[in-house]
Simulated assay, not measured.
Amino acid sequence: MKHSTLAAALLAWALSVMAGPASDTEIVYKAMTEVGCYSQVPTFKDLGKYTYQSSGYCQHQCVPQGYPVMALYDGGHCLCGKKLPPKSTKTDKSNCDKSCDGWPDEYCGGSDAYTVILTGLEDDVPTMDESSATTDGVSKTLTTQAGKTIWVTAEATQQSEEEDDGPNTAGIAAGVVVGILGLVGILAGAFFFYKRQKRKRAEEEYRRAQDINSFVAAAKTPPSEDSRWDGEYMAQRRFSNGSIADDEDFSRRILKVTNPDR
């Protein structure tokens, strides 16, 4: 680190006064100790990027949470851990070449490296086993199974534990989807059945109305004239045109005998 221990302590005190909670004053912050530059920090908790990041600020984030180790990354990230990273992940100090965003006089890791520092919370901090080393940033644990060496990722282990502790979320979701689709199918079938019955009733009503209209029209139509009826003759006929009895059928032309003297 470029600045002195006294400057770091003063900076930490200033930050605690400006940003720390009231209960923070009860915590005693001891001098920090830089351990070195590491390529990986497995299981460390990333607190995110801070615009004014520094070792003093990171210490005031990790110590209240009970972390004896912290790491600074990419100039602005603060990470907290319980143990020192595996020795195999230690790298050359030149890889931690990024100045802290909030205090340019010190380094806060690099683009692919972490400056690891003891927060002063514990004097004797253990180191992680080599089996906790990571590959591509994913924490792995070395296990032996049936004579084979297997690296198990921490994420996979956590996911497996979560699946064992609770119900199968995917199965429940699939069951809900199938149930909803079935309900939609039943409702759609009922709707189309109702529409079909309604249309059928409308067609029956229409045919019934047509039959009634045809019947009424037939009732109003006058009967056809008898072909035996001679209208012209009946218009010219006088009561005394003949001597045939009145109850005869006058709708036909018949032979008439008249008295010429009359």
Results as ranks from 00 to 15, higher is better:
229 W>I: 14
132 S>K: 04
95 N>W: 15
229 W>Y: 15
188 A>F: 06
15 L>V: 13
132 S>M: 05
94 S>K: 12
174 A>M: 02
167 P>Q: 05
217 A>W: 09
98 K>T: 06
241 N>R: 13
130 E>Q: 10
250 F>W: 09
122 E>M: 14
188 A>Q: 00
168 N>A: 05
15 L>F: 12
50 Y>D: 10
208 R>K: 14
74 D>F: 08
177 V>W: 00
93 K>S: 15
155 E>Q: 10
114 Y>I: 08
233 Y>N: 03
125 V>H: 07
2 K>C: 08
237 R>N: 05
77 H>P: 06
47 L>G: 06
75 G>I: 04
243 S>F: 14
41 V>G: 01
7 A>P: 01
124 D>L: 09
163 E>N: 04
139 S>W: 07
30 K>D: 06
148 K>W: 05
22 A>L: 13
224 S>T: 15
243 S>D: 14
85 P>N: 04
194 Y>L: 08
58 C>N: 02
233 Y>P: 00
261 D>T: 13
135 T>P: 03
46 D>R: 05
182 G>A: 01
156 A>H: 07
29 Y>C: 08
82 K>T: 14
190 A>W: 10
201 R>H: 09
123 D>V: 14
248 E>V: 11
205 E>Q: 10
197 Q>W: 13
53 Q>G: 04
45 K>S: 12
220 K>P: 05
86 P>K: 05
247 D>H: 09
222 P>R: 06
239 F>C: 02
167 P>L: 07
16 S>G: 14
46 D>M: 02
180 I>Y: 00
24 D>K: 07
212 I>T: 15
90 K>M: 11
93 K>D: 15
235 A>K: 14
249 D>M: 11
50 Y>N: 11
101 D>T: 15
227 S>V: 15
181 L>P: 00
139 S>K: 04
16 S>T: 12
202 A>G: 00
260 P>H: 10
16 S>Y: 07
75 G>Q: 04
118 L>M: 10
219 A>Y: 13
75 G>N: 03
163 E>C: 07
237 R>E: 06
87 K>Q: 15
34 E>G: 11
128 M>E: 10
133 A>D: 11
189 G>W: 01
54 S>C: 05
25 T>A: 15
193 F>S: 04
